[in-house]
Design a binder for these strands. Structure first.
Lengths: 207, 207
DNA sequence: TCCGCGACTGACCATACGTTCAGCGTCCTG
DNA sequence: CAGGACGCTGAACGTATGGTCAGTCGCGGA
């Protein structure tokens, strides 16, 4: 069942992983546009040319790096979405997953933000749209589906589920972003309470 | 009181305005990183060199363009923030201001998103942080102050006002972004209801 | 009408970046 | 131990972009 890994395969995977990790760190530091192949290579401890042995070009490098990280995020979240629980708990579980994932993968956060919105000439924009945006949309759509289900059950009020999902995802992303930049961030639970409280009950005080 | 405008000044202001408008259109089309001076010049109908008569370098161009647009946005919002009204109305007024402003200034939206998060080498990041981010933070802080006031009055629940402000601003920004990309966006009022409903009362159905 | 000033132009320059490839060292094989 | 295969290297190349500046041209004043 387990495919036998030859020595070469192990080395290859290790190289690929090192380069992808370096890519994330550099993008985290300089931002998507200013991350050069030179700096990525140095960060990974290889020569510039080596990267091209494993990735066709810069675009594929970024794309693959993004994919392998977001796949991990999606798995965490799917676990929360698929289980059948009241929407309150679901929201809390999803937000908790985001908080801890980005807490552990700070570097990825910046790349994630950059790819939400495609840049560059029309051709590249189209390619990014085809390869990375679906991942983002998919996430939003899955969340929207969960919200829709809760609406049908009468757990929450009826509104445009997709836009609602976007609101919640981006709002919480902003809080997480702030959190990652704080010198002494509060407990994860504190921010989690803020987000879920806001999402579930809004800001208005109930008498 | 009114400073007399010589003919030269009028011409100058017109040029500056044309170039800034072109800058926004190109950034809206290609994104911040891929917007070249060449293309901006063509869009403005002037030669590349002309831009440098009015702006020191690319950075100053982007910065000034951003500033003059965000100043207009801030003015609209301040009007809503300064008046003394219950928080419900304030929130609605602010969100309405955002919706209509970005509806009328679609081009600016992309630039606005790009500058939230500084890119490039450390030096440029620092400069952007000093010149553009304060505008963004200022907006968040003003909104946070309004929320804080409402908390003190007992109108809304107590939480971290700044993070709450970020959540609301970014959440609504996401909805506006989606709206701007829709083929046939609904009434402004529909999206406005979605946002204010979410912010004030959350998603949970009240029995 | 002629002159000179200055706004404007766009070919040109320096630089930086992605990508390539001829050669090097290393390790396995026979 | 010799030979060769292969992963890796980094100097070199082409291209694209921000920025410059010598030259052009239209306009206003003499």
């Amino acid at each position: 069942m387990i495919p036998p890994k030859s020595k070469e395969e192990v080395v290859q995977e290790f190289r690929i992983r090192s380069i992808q990790d370096a890519t994330m760190r550099v993008i985290a530091r300089k931002g998507m546009a200013a991350a050069t192949m030179q700096e990525i290579a140095e960060e990974a401890g290889v020569a510039k040319g080596t990267i091209y042995l494993y990735f066709r070009d810069r675009e594929e490098l970024v794309e693959k790096t993004f994919e392998s990280a977001i796949t991990r995020l999606m798995e965490t979240i799917d676990a929360a979405l698929d289980r059948d629980m009241p929407i309150e708990e679901k929201v809390r579980a999803i937000m908790a997953a985001h908080l801890s994932f980005f807490g552990e993968n700070r570097e990825f956060f910046r790349l994630y933000l950059s790819l939400r919105m495609p840049e560059g000439p029309a051709v590249r924009q189209r390619r990014q749209k085809q390869n990375c945006q679906p991942q983002y949309r998919l996430r939003a759509e899955k969340f929207a589906a969960a919200l829709q289900q809760a609406m049908d059950r009468g757990e929450i009020r009826r509104m445009d589920a997709y836009k609602l999902a976007l609101f919640i995802i981006e709002g919480s992303t902003a809080v997480i972003f702030e959190r990652l930049n704080e010198e002494a961030p509060p407990d994860e639970a504190t921010d989690l309470d803020l987000i879920t409280g806001m999402v579930l009950d809004g800001i208005r005080k109930r008498s």
